[in-house]
Nucleic acid binder design. Structure first.
Lengths: 152, 152
DNA sequence: GGCGATTAAATCGTGTGCGATCTAAATAGC
DNA sequence: GCTATTTAGATCGCACACGATTTAATCGCC
C-alpha cells in the first residue's frame, strides 16, 4: 500500500508491454524539464545524440539508429534545422540522399546536454550502474527480438 | 554483424532510456497487426483491458492506471464510445465525474483479444515466462522510481 | 541510350501525449 | 447563504509515430 497509487488489481501490471509503455512515459516526463532549458524535445535530443557521433549521416541511417522513418524524421529534422542546430544538404553524388550534420550550436548543445542530463536521469532511476546495464541489455535483447520478423 | 542492422557505434545503445523507447516502438509495431482486425489501437487496447477489470471507473481512475490524464484520455475514450465499445455517463451524485463502462461489444472484444493477442506477443518476445516476469518487475520498479518526485 | 523498377525523402491524414487553459460543478470559509 | 477555491473533464495547439502515397533521382536491363 505504500507505493501503489494506482487502484488495486490493475490487470495491466502483468503485461510486460505496459511496463515498457509506462516506463517510456515516465522517462519522457523526467526528460522534459531537463531538456526544456535547451528548447528541444526528447526525440530531438535522441536525434542530436545520434548525429553527434558521426557527421554526414543520411536520413535513413539516422532512422536505422532511432528505429524511425522519414515520415517521422523529416519534420523533426526540419524543426532542428529551423532551430539552427542541424544542417541538411543534398548529396552531390546522389541527389535523392540528404546528409545531416550538426551546426556548431547543435554540437555545443549536444555536448552541454550530455554533460548534465544523463547524470540527472541516472539519479531519477535510483539504480546503480551495474543494475542499469543489466536492464539495458535485457531491453536491447527484447527490442531486437520484437523487431525480428522471423519471431512472429 | 549478424544482428546489428543499425550503423556501428550507436551512442544511444548505452542509454537505458533509449532501450525503453525503442522497445516501446517495437511493441507498438508488434501489436498493430494483431489489433488491426479488432479496429483498435494499442493505447485503446490498454484502456479496454483496464476498463474490463471493473465497471464504473472514472476518467481519473483510468488515468491513474494508464498514467495518463484527461487531455489524452477524453479523445481516446470518445473514439471508443463512437466505436460502440465504451459507455460514458455523468455521475448523478457528482456531475463533474464521468463513469466509464464497457458495452457488451466492448466486453466481448476485450475477452476475444485477451484470448489470442497476449500469446502472440509473448511469442514475439522470444522470452520464457520467468525471464519475462523478472524484466517486468525491474521495469515496474524503474517506472515507479522515475515517477517518484522525491528522486529528482 | 532509353525505360521500367527501385530507392530516398517528403507529404498527408489519423491517433496519441502533453502543457496550458477553460468550463462547470462541488466544497470551504466566512 | 454566498462567494472563493478546488476539482473533474474537456478543449486547444504542438510534436511525435506511422500507414499510405507522392516525387524525384538512380539503377537495371535490354
Amino acid at each position: 500500500m505504500t507505493e501503489t497509487p494506482a487502484p488495486a488489481g490493475n490487470p495491466l501490471d502483468q503485461f510486460l508491454c505496459f511496463s515498457v509503455y509506462a516506463a517510456g512515459l515516465a522517462f519522457n516526463r523526467v526528460y522534459k524539464p531537463l531538456l526544456d532549458p535547451f528548447g528541444i524535445t526528447y526525440p530531438q535530443y535522441l536525434a542530436l545524440v545520434a548525429l553527434s557521433s558521426r557527421d554526414g549521416q543520411t536520413v535513413s541511417e539516422l532512422g536505422e539508429r532511432l528505429h524511425l522513418e522519414s515520415n517521422t524524421l523529416t519534420p523533426l529534422i526540419k524543426r532542428l534545422e529551423a532551430a539552427g542546430l542541424v544542417t541538411r544538404t543534398r548529396d552531390k553524388q546522389d541527389e535523392r540522399v540528404v546528409r545531416l550534420g550538426l551546426t556548431s550550436a547543435g554540437s555545443d548543445l549536444a555536448k552541454t546536454a550530455l554533460g548534465c542530463v544523463p547524470g540527472e536521469v541516472l539519479k531519477a532511476t535510483g539504480m546503480d550502474q551495474a543494475a542499469l546495464e543489466r536492464l539495458n541489455n535485457s531491453l536491447a535483447a527484447l527490442g531486437a527480438a520484437l523487431r525480428d520478423p522471423a519471431a512472429r
